[in-house]
Amino acid sequence: MPDNFERDDEHTLIDQLRRGCPRAAESFVRENAGWMMTVARRYVTDRALAEDCVQDAFLSAFTNIDRFEGRSSLRSWLHQIVVNAALMKFRTLRRHDPRPIDDLLPALDAYGVRVEAPWHQIATPAEILEREDMRRLVMKKIDELPDDYRIVLLLRDIEELSTNEVAGLLGLTEGNVKVRLHRARTALKKLVEPLLRKEFGS
């Protein structure tokens, strides 16, 4: 029953953290700081600022560990905290939107019928991401999305938060989150279309 063992371990760890055991605190930080940095850097590219987010997140975790109810795993609780910290930092940094989204939105003609050039074949993610320069290119295209859209895309698709959770984090309605997610994905589709289109004989 590895599941039970893990849960017992987690209970013990939480107890120790609540009692302020320094060794538990240290291993807790060492074990989680790495992936938390990865999460923070999705929102805050600057390394030093991302480190600040991780530090803020841990302090908030230590302060609030008494209130952790164990309804989720410790890891997903920490995940929420670091996403929150990164979003707060992100709001203070807000960059200039690098490009408008208007020409990337779903395209319908004057009759309201979708405009979509015929697809012959679509490349799979594995085929595209085989090459290192393509991996970088896809990440760059995601980064080109305007902030309001990119954030929703990250929170829903990469952090895998629910529409409801994202709505709460950003102070939007659920309907609004869905519209933004849809627009972000459509815009990204347009930006990566040259990579997805597999022409015959190439």
């Binding site: 999705r42 697809w119 679509i122 490349a123 799979t124 993610p125 594995a126 595209i128 991401l129 991996r135 896809v138 990440m139 995601i142 895309l153 698709d157 990469i158 994905r185 459509t186 990204l188 589709k189 990566v192 279309e193 990579l195 997805l196």
Partner: peptide, 13 residues
């Protein structure tokens, strides 16, 4: 293509 885009985005990360 929309589905593939979402898959591509997740796989790239």
């Amino acid at each position: 293509a929309y589905r593939r885009t979402v898959e591509l985005e997740k796989a790239a990360f």
